[in-house]
Write a protein that binds this DNA or RNA. Structure first.
Lengths: 271, 271
DNA sequence: GAACCCCGGTCGACAATGTCGAACACTGTT
DNA sequence: AACAGTGTTCGACATTGTCGACCGGGGTTC
């Protein structure tokens, strides 16, 4: 009786999808909220942000705490992400095939090119870094496996968007954040860039994320030819690009070779 | 009907705690299961392992898939952990105070000692590595942030157990796995070792995890003096220990100094 | 110091929610 | 061709989680 009514009046935020376990979806939303607003949140803030009754939010958070996904700072009473998530996250890395197949090829690419190498995949419209090899030289760099990069301002990201029209549309619908003067922010230019990437089979980014830095990336295809990720290198503009401000052909070849090698490994895999 | 019976016969792992959201607890169990049995699992295996009806397990897994915590291999239909967990895990690292306070002190410790440094905390009776600094020399080492180490066979683990009687009892109740001939496996010897650690304020491990390797660790105390983690170094026996097979006093001092420094940082922190 | 406000946490009644098992569609094997 | 697997769907039932009012305590403000 009130089923249909409730479904019709629902805020449309939670669509009456075939069989979504409500409490789990809410729990996931809380975890994402805690992850995004880095820091500690109180029950009240959580409940307000997700438009949940305080009691309900508390029940979910308590359970998340029991399973170790959430921790509570006993003095302030506020909540933050829990340690169990760290282990789950790295467990994901162990299983992730894109990563495991890439490792063997990422190191040589870094060695040959002399630049830092990253492998990423699309997660929720952003670039999730699943592997990262430091630039061979000593300089201290921070490992950013697990972090999210902007898709429109990185070589890897643009390559991934080029082969995922859905994600590309989503990005263009939103307002891409400008990081430098050269960051692509309009849907028109981005769309053109993606078309060019599809034609060439590789993509680049020059000072669109940070001044003085550039990157080159190529798509990695999995079983069936679907693009499942991208591999790319990044470094100072004067090393990555030639005199004409174009990505050096030799580096492009390196990246494309690595991408092909990983794709071959992935395509051959079966069970 | 089977409610009371089931509750009475329940392995005590799932107690009828005041207000556990059942579906969330089950979802967490599924994620843990996927993490432990590394690889892909089918719905049937999941349902069987957790003693759930197939339909129920499927509903939960579908939801987990919708939120990105689980991915499905379309060819085999089996499930594995999802990419969203990776980001949540690293987000935890960003927030984790033990880690952030430790970083500044872990590097100098590694530099002074010339050995690899790890910082860990207890998670579910095991040692969760929250930070890891490579040995200064070049040799390639694998980053094991996020992995779980055995508590009874590592210096960090034994230190953590020494200040957590609950976890210590749990470990002794189970059957500690022997890695080498020197691994402490009996409750008696382990208990003695923990007592000694409490007396000394630091602990060591010599070839108990892997032959030829040794480690030294000291506890890190948080606000209020509670032990919240441990910091330790590890390396070849002949470098970590002196002629008498004892941990070198200078290294012990280094480790204890670092632990104190981090503790001071943590204790002073307030908001 | 006492009013106030906000915090996190608790409790119990209600019904919406998730659970459950049988049935389905499909694949590969026997 | 029958079988034994798989993952998936569906609907009826009642268990389950939700909800809002109610505690108890720490700050702050007047």
């Amino acid at each position: 009786m009130s089923n249909t009514v409730a479904a019709a009046e629902m805020p449309l935020a939670f669509r009456p999808m075939p069989g979504q376990v409500q409490s789990i979806a809410r729990a996931a939303a809380i975890l994402r909220l805690l992850a995004s607003s880095s820091g500690r949140l109180g029950i009240g803030e959580i409940a307000r942000s997700l438009d949940l009754p305080k009691g309900t939010a508390h029940g979910i958070v308590r359970t998340l705490q029991d399973v170790g996904f959430v921790e509570q700072d006993k003095t302030s009473g506020k909540y933050q992400l829990g340690a169990a998530l760290l282990h789950l996250g790295t467990s994901y890395l162990d299983v992730n095939e894109l990563r495991s197949r890439s490792i063997n090829w990422a190191d040589p690419l870094a060695a040959r090119s002399g630049e830092a190498v990253r492998i990423g995949t699309l997660l929720d419209g952003k670039v999730l870094v699943v592997h990262h090899v430091f630039r061979p030289d000593d300089t201290l760099q921070t490992l950013d496996v697990g972090s999210l990069l902007p898709p429109h301002a990185t070589a890897i990201g643009k390559v991934l968007l080029a082969y995922d029209v859905g994600a590309a549309n989503t990005v263009m619908q939103g307002e891409p954040e400008p990081y430098t003067r050269r960051t692509v922010v309009t849907a028109r230019t981005l769309s053109q860039a993606l078309t060019k990437i599809r034609e060439n089979g590789w993509g680049a980014e020059i000072e669109e994320m940070t001044l003085g830095e550039a990157g080159i990336a190529a798509p990695i295809r999995g079983y069936g030819g679907l693009v499942v990720g991208a591999i790319g290198l990044s470094g100072p503009v004067d090393r990555v690009c030639d005199g004409q401000g174009q990505p050096r052909p030799t580096l492009v070849a390196y990246v494309r070779d690595a991408a092909r090698a990983v794709s071959r490994d992935l395509g051959a895999a079966r069970w």
